[in-house]
Design a protein around this nucleic acid. Structure first.
Lengths: 337, 337
DNA sequence: AATGCAATTGGTATCGATATCAAGATATCG
DNA sequence: CGATATCTTGATATCGATACCAATTGCATT
């Protein structure tokens, strides 16, 4: 319907002019057009303006493929996400999506495109063509990282930094997250804190370590309630267990907002309340936490900033600069609990 | 570090062989290589196998840009998402992410790449180069759709079908969602249903219409509690209002799981309980709803299928076939409430 | 006036793949 | 046996942009 504006004389039926067309219109050569559109100082300001005007007037659109072919790069970053529905946290909160926001914003303003792929489809030719790789999601742990490393492309990974591998890793400071919560509990005079979560995730382990270490500085030793799931049910169950074994506790650090909310719910069943009897802090600052009653205190990660940083690091690597792994500060959002 | 496997004699320092290289190795011409790798029947099965072996052995990688340039298409679909943090629903649940799962899976297996863009950065050259467009998120309502329509590319939109515009729209059947809930309420003998939500969203309006119309068939007229936000607080507030005006109600259809949970919470404060006194059904089947206590009944949309469908429609349009708008069935997930 | 320098512009080759048309080799037919 | 059909392969041009080197012009220098 919309491709009729091309004369039959037009060789290929494409409705968008090429640089050759513009050159003909402007009475110059292709290369001058190329330079003019690139704002090159090599071309006379007047002709530059004239050519740009002609280009605008005729709705010129750069053929990215031609340019990329000539320049031997794709101006594309492949973002590889694990999106398979699973009981794991990746589906419980949209964190890869939030990261994607920062990533796309940063990359597109830098003139790069974002090629989205799942781990399994990442063999496509387009991924090889990318100038760089960003790995997101749980898949970034062990095997996948090594697999993509073999491509020999600049690569940045989201997650917890590991000693074994030497990739550039960007992640939020989970250790600090744990430490902040610990300090908070100490400040408000809590003496018997509990940690709820699954420390087999590297990120969660960091939170636990920050929590434990900081409390140790004040001579406090927390109780560890290991729960594998990040669900509300697990939170409820954790508190029930505490009640059953008649453990003494006055504060809970839950590794997700859902866990925290489950915990609060269970407390209420025991005729205890947050924060009167037990302080509760969750993690992630999901929309839930702000609107929950009582409003949930939680640790917030800056996803937008994380995405931005991931993008900047790949771009740096692509330009031959070396990039360091980096952890982002988190903030403790104190609300009612 | 990883680019040392190239001899100094190598003309350009690229570490990946081209078809010309393979041709030299195989003692054939480039075009034969091209045909062999494309599994063309034009080339002798033996040489085909031989060339493919050589390609594999030397780690040949197709140069996508070169091919796309020659074929005058990009094998790329641009997905334009609205990702700006906002108080609107787009941040309350990760639905664009879920759609992305189905989209990328379908497109990549069809040999297409997914180019992710936000609405504001969508002017980039790469978007013009795309073979098709998929619009997701709230931005898909009015202005944005028209803007992208001007590009003259095959385009598919996620949302509620509109009479005014004639784009291909894929969405879940919100009308059916409302109807299912209505039927459920009727079946279990509820006589005084309430609708909570913001009908200024086209999707929500459809839910309301389906709800109202189906109830009307049974001579029941529901109460409409208009609430603009999709938050838990709005749900609580809605029930409070009902209590204040001493309205009679025995069932609530809330347009998001958060609203529903807020409502249940408020009911408890009034010494009522779901489902004993009031049946409650939410929407979206977020992870919340399954683990909430009592387990929340809710309407589930099949995001994966939605993404798949979006992808298939653009592909169809690209291939010159015509595609119809389509609405996906939803399912009522009955749990405790 | 002759030379040198800078500013501007263009011709040609090139990136890596594929379409077109043509040609060589082999097979099949009357 | 000559001729036509079939199979297999290749030479060349092309997609659209940019790099490299050369050429032209105008102006300043000695």
């Amino acid at each position: 319907m919309s491709r009729i504006n091309t004369t039959t004389a037009d060789p290929a039926g494409s409705n968008s002019p090429t640089m050759a067309d513009l050159a003909r219109l402007a009475g110059t050569s292709k290369i001058t057009v190329s330079r003019a559109l690139a704002d090159s100082p090599l071309v006379n300001p007047d002709t530059r303006a004239r050519i740009q005007a002609i280009a605008r007037e005729h709705g010129y659109k750069l053929n990215v493929n031609a340019r990329n072919l000539r320049l031997r790069r794709s101006h594309t970053i492949a973002v590889i996400v694990e999106m398979k529905p699973s009981s794991d946290r990746s589906m419980l909160d949209p964190y890869p999506l939030n990261l994607l926001g920062g990533i796309t914003q940063e990359l597109t303003t830098a003139g790069y495109s974002v090629l989205l792929t799942t781990r399994h489809e990442a063999n496509a030719a387009a991924v090889h063509a990318a100038d760089g790789l960003i790995l997101l999601g749980q898949g970034a742990h062990q095997d996948a990282v090594r697999r993509f490393d073999k491509l020999g492309l600049p690569m940045v990974v989201w997650g917890a930094p590991s000693n074994r591998d030497d990739h550039v890793v960007v992640g939020s400071n989970n250790r600090q997250g744990g430490a902040l919560v610990a300090e908070h509990f100490v400040t408000i005079g809590r003496k018997h804190p509990v940690f709820v979560g699954n420390p087999s995730h590297p990120e969660i382990l960091d939170r636990l370590n920050g929590f434990v270490d900081t409390l140790a500085e004040h001579g406090i030793k927390p109780l560890l309630m290991r729960r594998d799931e990040f669900t509300m049910a697990a939170g409820i169950d954790a508190v029930h267990s505490l009640a059953v074994r008649e453990a003494e506790f006055d504060s809970i650090f839950a590794c997700s907002d859902l866990l925290a909310i489950g915990a609060i719910r269970a407390l209420e069943e025991l005729d205890k309340s947050a924060p009167r009897d037990v302080s509760v802090v969750g993690y992630d600052d999901t929309p839930l936490s702000a609107s929950f009653l009582p409003a949930l205190s939680t640790v917030r990660q800056d996803w937008q900033e994380g995405g931005t940083l991931l993008a900047r690091k790949v771009l740096a690597l692509i330009q031959g600069q070396n990039a360091q792994s980096e952890t982002l500060p988190v903030t403790l959002v104190l609300r009612a609990t």
